[in-house]
């Protein structure tokens, strides 16, 4: 029916991106564009923190306790040197937030990579082989899901702190958070992957590979997995946001990053003691940053889910 205009074959990679459906829908969705711009700015700020930040909050020599609890620069008692004010230890809040975002994003990203790795292997195996293997792996996932992420994380981290002491814990905090959040949430991926593997497995191209005599590994990873990637991409955005929230919650409870290397959650927590004495900025400003970060990720995830839905193209 639609023979009229067939675009010429795109030549370069950039042209191909510009002609793709995702780019087309992206330009027509203001929410997605604004979200993407905000996310990019925050990621760039976090990556370039050592360059952008006026102060290195991890360097004790640069801190002056006399500067503690200064309000943001726009209020009357503010100091133009500290744009967003300082925290209780005299650290510049802007610098601390930039470094904290960096920590939050790192934990979110690596925790999700770990989740995805475990989830993909388990989900692919369960979906492809089916039967008892499927039953066993999925019941395992159900059991894992029946513990709340926070409960598992709190128990593991608290035991670790008690057993090995605060000092070792401070050094290992980031690794521990990645492991705990990564392991606690893999069933999300496993379930999603399994569902799409079950759908793909029915298709004749998979039967064709079996008629050719290919082994299960080659069929699973080379033929089925690439066709299950869109749902993985979609849940990944949401899962990064979730992991960042989990990390913030754990840090808020004192089980996350140590005060010397605060993530966004730890910052919120450290300011919380002072919130009733009028020093609201230590809690509120990192809080806003956290909310915005998570919100734009979720919005992008929603948008991606709509765009990746193949029904959209058929209209």
């Amino acid at each position: 029916m639609n023979e009229a205009v067939v675009p010429a074959r795109p030549e370069t990679r950039w042209q191909r991106i510009r002609q793709s459906n995702i780019y087309y829908y992206f330009l027509r969705d203001k929410v997605a564009m604004v979200s993407a711009v905000i996310l990019l700015l925050m990621v760039a700020g976090a990556l370039l923190a050592p360059v952008l930040a006026p102060q290195n909050p991890y360097d004790m020599a640069q801190l002056d306790i006399m500067n503690s609890e200064l309000p943001p620069a726009w209020s009357e008692e503010g100091d133009s040197q500290f744009l967003l004010g300082t925290d209780d230890q005299g650290r510049d809040l802007l610098s601390t937030i930039l470094y904290g975002t960096r920590i939050s994003l790192t934990i979110g990203l690596f925790a999700v990579i770990l989740q995805a790795f475990l989830g993909i292997v388990v989900g692919l195996t369960a979906g492809y082989f089916g039967g008892r293997i499927d039953g066993f792996l999925m019941r395992l996932a159900d059991i894992q899901l029946s513990f709340s992420t926070m409960m598992v994380a709190i128990i593991v981290l608290a035991v670790f702190q008690a057993a090995f002491g605060m000092e070792l814990y401070s050094r290992m905090a980031m690794l521990m958070l990645i492991l705990v959040i990564g392991i606690a949430e893999w069933p999300q991926y496993a379930r999603t992957i399994r569902a799409s593997v079950l759908a793909e497995k029915q298709k004749e191209y998979v039967e064709a590979t079996r008629v050719m005599g290919f082994g299960p590994g080659r069929i699973m990873f080379r033929h089925i997995l690439p066709n299950c990637l869109s749902p993985i991409l979609v849940i990944s955005t949401v899962q990064i946001a979730n992991a960042i929230i989990s990390e913030a919650a754990l840090s808020f409870l004192g089980l996350g990053m140590p005060p010397s290397q605060p993530s966004l959650g730890a910052l919120i927590s450290s300011g919380f003691e002072y919130i009733f004495s009028g020093t609201w900025w230590i809690t509120v400003i990192p809080g806003i940053v956290l909310v915005v970060l998570v919100l734009v990720m979720n919005l992008l995830g929603d948008w991606l889910r709509d765009v990746m839905n193949p029904k959209l193209y058929k209209g």
Binding site: K203, E204, Y205, E207, A208, V211, G213, P226
Partner: peptide, 22 residues
């Protein structure tokens, strides 16, 4: 495996019998 090479199959549905990502 060597016998699988000798016997091949053409499937019914042209829309699902080819891997869309290859």
């Amino acid at each position: 495996i060597p016998f699988r090479r000798q016997i091949q199959m053409v499937f019914q549905n042209p829309y699902s019998s080819l891997n869309p990502r290859m």
